[in-house]
Design a protein around this nucleic acid. Structure first.
Lengths: 112, 112
DNA sequence: TCCTTCATTCGTAGAACATCGAAAGAGGTG
DNA sequence: CACCTCTTTCGATGTTCTACGAATGAAGGA
């Protein structure tokens, strides 16, 4: 046998992703920051270049959660792994959800 | 001292509730079912009358999570506790979020 | 081939979470 | 007052989550 290539990444069809899984994926500060970054960069980004403050192994964990919740798409490009937001698909499956989450200010100065 | 009345329930101002807290509150099947039920019943409902399949003590826990995330309002009415969705406030703080979450079908038959 | 870079998996530790049953308290009714 | 109903709190349990460091594997350049 020749060398094993990198295992193919699994990306669930959004139709089979429960809403609760998406909500859970978006309930973590770090992952939310990743989604924010990706939304501002539609062409995608390499894993290691995200402005987050966790160890690489932890970051990898968060990418897995996001990927399995159907929020991001990842593919290998040489040594790096390219990450993109599945924005159009998400909006088809959960209309308005991503926009609403992204639009929310972290904390509102105006209490209501 | 006379008897203690029931302790006043705390309801955070939505301005100080982090988005992640709301997302977390909505990432549980049981809590999502509660929110669904409440949205269909704007006048509110007593705690024990929700069509969920958990023990009373567990249900109480979920109400606490929802309340502290600013999703519901509760007040005492005699022996029972009345629960209402803070829908207008939520929509002011996180426009479109509640609608998007509620609109999402549990599972889509059309994979996309 | 050697070495560097990029990202993952593994093992582990600590915190948080969902769940239940038992006990307790407050309100209303007889 | 006694009793019943509604709901919560407490304590315990098992699971899940986030986090890290160390080790591993793949890709590409010197």
């Amino acid at each position: 046998m020749a060398h094993n290539p990198r295992p193919a990444l699994e990306h669930p069809q959004l139709g089979v992703v429960p809403v609760t899984a998406v909500m859970h994926a978006l309930s973590d500060e770090t992952r939310l920051a990743i989604v924010h970054t990706l939304l501002a960069e539609p062409t995608g980004r390499a894993c290691g270049t995200f402005p987050v403050d966790v160890a690489p192994s932890t970051l990898s964990h968060h990418f897995k959660v996001l990927r399995e919740a159907g929020l991001i798409h990842q593919e290998d490009r040489g040594t790096q792994r390219w990450t993109m937001l599945r924005a159009p698909e998400l909006d088809a499956r959960f209309p308005g959800l991503l926009a609403a989450v992204i639009a929310a200010p972290e904390l509102s100065t105006d209490p209501s």
